[in-house]
Design a protein around this nucleic acid. Structure first.
Length: 481
RNA sequence: GACCCCUUCGUCUAAUCGGUUAGGACACCAGCCUUUCAAGCUGGCAACAGGGGUUCGAAUCCCCUAGGGGUCACCA
């Protein structure tokens, strides 16, 4: 095991979306590639917004994607004394100080800054308070925050594995808060302490954190720790180039799952957003990704995700999926559409398998697959309107169907070859072409114009059902003509 | 507004010390295959943001402009 340690540290304030999932994936790939350790940490210091059901969602989503972590989950909410202890130490070392400014006072400063059209910075009001002044404030009942004393000059350089050296003027960084008045740490403090204490060697996270990094570096230096390496991966944007949000349709891993995407396809697709293995291969297994992964090959540009390509990729995975596993995965979608009344037994599973194999390459998602295959599981379907016009309203249609029905009734069991031959003879008898008979029969037994091969369809449907549907269609034709 | 990052087909991307007819994939269009719908196969459309340099030679290096994004909380 190498010394490489990475972490995925989401805050449980929402469902895991593909941006976060992709960050987790890159961490996972990097850890596997380097023989390192992948740590999961839950950054739940924001009591207001953190929710346990989001933690469940996070964990379920990671597991579903197959991104197994090696350590954790750790919870920041359980490590609070760690942060306050470090903050007290910094105060003793005169690297941090208590600030008694009220939120209103600070807000007023911000309003002024806005008016003068300049960036707001904490003016350092409490930087040099005497013990007496502190006493007075305390007597007034003010709850202090703790601020870090940050350098007033010089530059802080972020050395980023993906972006190179990025430097920031220290004048742009004020004495920011590390412990809030409620005693909880802020992100820039807790996260730094955890990363350092957990011996994280590479912080791989989204680009939105790049601007925060100089603060964290200053923080780490005050604390007296060595710096980890940083790698800021590009963001994933919605099709309208804005940040991902609910109004962009499905963005969370759970939603993609519920829409019938396979985890392998989603992982494959996410990996290719901001990274490429180099060659022309796009359909690659997780193993292959691990083998080829390097931060060097991660892009700098934000990527816009395209559900269309995800769907295509999903269809590719469905085609090659183990049929057993695929029909297993499809069951919830059949259930959702009320196509499965009870838990399927062995016989039904067998049938499901056949159905899934027959329709899989016609669907892009499991949800679509269940739609396409619905007529195999229910008699309750409508006839395609165009099809009715084209095939049912033709001279002799109902007679042809009745003939086909008696043909099938007369057949003891189905052999695809026999069926085909029998239909061939039938079309000769009826003196119509197979090109006219077959679509008519298809419409009668499936209600649709397209689908798996006709004889395969009849085979799966079974003799009785097929014959019954043929007669039903014939009756229907008689009733409308 | 300040600071920071980014810029190759509509979208994802390749071209990793400068020399390519700028490659692939999705989508789209056409053809083939096919009893249908798909799938598959073949072909087509389509990009180096703009302007200056450096160089024999720039998508690649430098500068400027424009555009996009991110951060500026007692959120993470």
């Amino acid at each position: 095991m190498s010394n490489i340690r990475v972490r995925f540290a989401p805050s449980p304030t929402g469902e895991l979306h593909i941006g976060g999932a992709r960050t987790a994936l890159f961490n996972y790939l990097f850890a596997r590639k380097t023989g390192g350790t992948f740590v999961l940490r839950i950054d739940d210091t924001d009591l207001e917004r953190s929710r346990t059901d989001y933690i469940d969602n996070l964990i379920a989503s990671l597991k579903w994607l197959g991104l197994q972590w090696d350590e954790g989950p750790y919870y920041q909410s359980k490590r609070l004394t760690e942060y306050t202890g470090e903050a007290e130490r910094l105060i003793k070392e005169n690297k941090a100080y208590r600030c008694y400014c009220s939120m209103d006072e600070l807000a007023a400063g911000r309003v002024d800054a806005k008016k003068e059209n300049r960036a707001y910075q904490y003016p350092g009001t409490c930087r040099h308070l005497t013990p007496e002044q502190e006493e007075t404030f305390k007597k007034e009942g003010r709850q202090p925050v703790i601020r870090l004393r940050t350098p007033d000059e010089g530059t802080t350089v972020v050395s980023d594995e993906i972006r190179g050296e990025v430097s920031f003027e220290n004048t742009g960084i004020d004495d920011f808060i590390i412990i809030k008045s409620n005693g909880l740490p802020t992100y820039n403090f807790a996260s730094v302490i955890d990363d350092l204490q957990m011996k994280i060697s590479h912080i791989i996270r989204a680009e939105e954190h790049l601007s925060n990094t100089p603060r964290q570096i200053i923080c780490a230096r005050s604390l007296g720790y060595d710096l980890p390496k940083f790698a800021h991966v590009p963001m994933i944007l919605a099709p309208d180039r804005s940040k991902l949000s609910k109004r962009h349709g499905a963005t969370s891993v759970e939603e993609f799952r519920d829409q019938g995407f396979l985890p392998e396809a989603l992982v494959n697709y996410m990996a290719l957003l901001g990274w490429s293995p180099g060659g022309d291969e796009e359909l690659i297994t997780l193993e292959k990704m691990v083998e080829n992964f390097s931060l060097e090959r991660v892009n700098k540009t934000a990527a816009i995700y395209d559900v269309g390509k995800l769907a295509w990729m999903n269809s590719q995975y469905m085609k090659d999926y183990d049929p057993q596993l695929l029909s297993e995965a499809a069951i919830p979608f059949f259930e959702k559409k009320n196509l499965l009344t009870a838990k399927p037994g062995d016989d039904e599973k067998n049938k499901l398998n056949k159905i899934v194999i027959a329709v899989r390459e016609r669907a892009k998602t499991l949800d679509e697959l269940a739609d396409i295959a619905s007529y195999f599981l229910t008699d309750d379907f409508e006839y395609d309107e165009k099809g009715v016009k084209k095939h049912f309203k033709k001279e002799g249609a109902s007679r042809h169907l009745r003939q086909a029905a008696s043909l099938i009734d007369a057949m003891p069991e189905f052999e695809a070859m026999d069926l085909e031959k029998a239909f061939h003879r039938l079309s000769e008898e009826l003196q119509i072409s197979a090109g006219r008979l077959n679509p008519l029969v298809r419409l009668a037994i499936t209600g649709r114009m397209g689908g798996p091969g006709l004889f395969e369809t009849i085979n799966i449907l079974g003799r009785q059902k097929t014959a019954a549907r043929l007669k039903r269609a014939a009756d229907y034709i008689d009733s409308i003509t």
